Simulated scan of single mutants.
Amino acid sequence: MSEVALIKNHRPSTGYEKLYGLIKQRSWGMVLAVLFLFGLFVAAIFPYFFAPDDPLGINPEFAFQAPSWAHWFGTDQSGRDIFTRVIHGSRQSLTIGVFAIALALSIAIPLGVLAGLIGGWVDRVIGWIVEILFAFPSLILALLFVAVFGSGIGQLVIATGIGIAPGYARMIRGQVIAVRKAGYIEAARALGHSPWRIVRRQLLPNAMRPLVVMVTMGVGQAIVWASALSFLGLGAKPPAPEWGTMMSAGRDFIANAWWLTFFPGFFILLTTLSTTVVGRYLQHRLEGREL
């Protein structure tokens, strides 16, 4: 085989080729999940491209209209278009999910790395802190935080991030301990590499690999938790077009206007399902397994 053919066969595949490969393998669930998440992120950045109307504008004349060609998802009690509000609500829901995961990682990574790397009394103290947090169900811990510090978008992000952080810290600690005992770490020590170089070049990159999967699935989990808190009236305040807030506002009319809660809830379900599918796919790829 010529060198040109070798280079052609070993060149990196583009995003289009990877997507075509998934379609060729009939991984339709993965393809649909990626397309949905891509559309959701585009809608979060450019919501007026999909829904040019004002999500807060009221028109009582069109209140409680069922889904139709004029209003795809129907209208609410104030005549606001549900489709417009769901599209614009993707920005708030995704922002809450992403920032909550970022906060959880900023807490979990230092705790997990210190506990797994240093060990001893540091590991025991951090272990006690994590166990105390684990004594409360994560959603109850978030509820407790919101009850103490009040409701709002900022409090919602902090509460969700704190609720997720203990699980991440425990996982990172276990990964650091497992990688620290790996053969290539011992080989690096034998070659005379400095401890800082070993941590920076070998230990941390390998210990953090599972985080890619957990963060992907964690965004959907954070959105569910944030929506649950908003549904209970502890998150974004009406008439904010946040999915949980929309469900909370529509529950009083669920018997006669099912679409008020169905479509926001359906988008929460699709987002969580899509992030889970993508996360599982990444997990299989990192483990070298086929789908």
Rank of each mutant, 00 (worst) to 15 (best):
K8V: 12
K8F: 12
S13Q: 15
T14S: 15
T14L: 11
G15D: 11
Y16Q: 15
Y20W: 14
G21I: 09
K24T: 13
W28D: 09
M30N: 13
L32C: 14
V34S: 12
V34N: 09
L37P: 00
F38S: 12
G39M: 12
G39K: 10
L40F: 04
F41M: 09
A43Q: 00
A43F: 05
A44G: 11
A44P: 06
P47I: 07
F49M: 14
F50D: 02
A51V: 10
A51K: 08
A51Y: 05
D54I: 07
P55E: 01
G57N: 08
P60H: 10
E61K: 14
F62Y: 13
Q65W: 09
Q65N: 11
A66I: 10
W69G: 12
H71E: 01
T75F: 03
G79I: 00
G79R: 00
F83A: 12
R85E: 04
R85M: 03
I87E: 01
I87S: 03
G89P: 04
I101H: 00
A102K: 08
L105A: 06
L105W: 05
L105Y: 02
S106H: 07
S106E: 09
G112A: 04
V113W: 03
G116N: 06
I118E: 10
G119D: 02
G119T: 03
V125I: 15
G127A: 10
W128K: 14
L133M: 15
L133P: 06
A142Y: 00
L143I: 13
L143C: 08
F145L: 13
V146P: 01
V146K: 04
A147R: 12
A147K: 11
G150Y: 08
G150W: 09
G152I: 07
G152Y: 03
I153F: 14
Q155L: 10
Q155G: 15
I158C: 06
T160N: 04
I162D: 01
I164W: 07
A165W: 00
G167S: 13
G167F: 11
I172L: 09
R173D: 02
R173Q: 10
G174S: 11
G174A: 09
G174N: 08
Q175T: 05
I177A: 08
A178I: 09
A182E: 11
Y184E: 01
E186G: 05
A188W: 10
H193L: 15
R197M: 02
V199S: 05
R200C: 11
P205Q: 02
P205D: 00
M208D: 05
P210H: 04
V215R: 06
M217C: 08
G220M: 01
I223E: 00
A226I: 01
A226D: 00
S227D: 02
S227Y: 04
S227I: 03
A228W: 06
S230T: 02
F231S: 03
K237H: 12
K237R: 14
P238S: 11
P239R: 08
P241H: 02
G244A: 08
G244I: 04
M246E: 01
M247D: 02
S248V: 06
A249H: 04
R251G: 06
W258H: 10
L260S: 09
F263W: 12
P264M: 01
F267W: 12
T271C: 13
T275M: 07
T276S: 14
R280S: 04
R280D: 13
G288Y: 07
R289D: 07
